[in-house]
Design a protein around this nucleic acid. Structure first.
Lengths: 142, 142
DNA sequence: CAACAGTTTAGAATTATTATAATGTAGATT
DNA sequence: AATCTACATTATAATAATTCTAAACTGTTG
């Protein structure tokens, strides 16, 4: 169990003020064994239900985006009009379960390294993301 | 230049009533040399500007989704809270230019076939999409 | 051409997100 | 420790994308 003072230091290191709210969000996001995926809505629920603290929706948005900018979180685009975030910030790919809308990490060994042979002139590659959409066998394909 | 009666037949084939609005949308989307990418907003503009016809926003949404369900269009998720559609419905990958928000098709030869070694139990793979995010060399990475 | 199911429409409702402006607070300065 | 200041938080309003609704309309079938 990481202590709060570690979060305080961590936040300071990247130049974010360790406010009550940011520390609370750190606790919810990073005080756990495994990395996970969430939407802003999930996060708000976690904070307001599990820990009984009031936090403004705007603060959650601000903080999550601040964390993303600083590399604490990665945003994943799957569903138009819903943002998923991942506490696993390393380069990795995803399965998306279209039945349950669940996002599942790909093991590194599950997909070969993607080799891009040609790029757009004058541009650099920021990221290469693979999304494998899956659904029940009996389900009609989306 | 495909004639309208072809669109009528095409729509009938998949069980969509060939209404004025659907035919108009077909014209805008498919009466062209190359496939292309668009947002609902783009499409509404194209219809209302290029051709001077009134069409309800709701109809555009309905029709685009009907087309997608029937395999006339492919939806591409890139940006949370904006839906991109592609008139190229074959399996292919994309570059996304983060400077201009432009979506560019990958040539088939630009990326090796992706090999998924393991899947989620009881699920079938619906699609495998690669998204290569690019930006100007001088730009800070997102 | 009558009947009906599917479609379109304008506008209201919903959902996700961002902006605003007042209030609060962390951390530096005294 | 009191003060200062820039950054954060908050509640709420605004915006944007999308979906819903209920009434009017229109292909299609018989």
């Amino acid at each position: 169990m990481t202590k709060n003072c570690n979060f305080i230091e961590k936040l300071r290191e990247v130049g974010l003020r360790p406010t009550k709210q940011r520390i609370k969000i750190c606790e919810v996001l990073y005080n756990r064994e495994k990395t996970f995926h969430f939407t802003i809505n999930d996060l708000v629920k976690m904070i307001s239900e599990k820990m009984n603290e009031k936090i403004s929706l705007a603060t959650v948005y601000n903080t999550v985006h601040a964390f993303e900018k600083k590399g604490y979180l990665k945003e994943i685009s799957i569903d138009s009009h819903k943002s998923y975030f991942d506490t696993n910030t390393s380069a990795h790919h995803h399965f998306f379960d279209e039945d349950t809308h669940e996002l599942i990490d790909c093991d590194e060994s599950d997909i070969d390294k993607i080799n891009i042979r040609k790029n757009i002139t004058g541009k650099k590659i920021n990221s290469v993301e693979v999304l494998v959409r899956v659904a029940s066998d009996n389900q009609t394909q989306k």
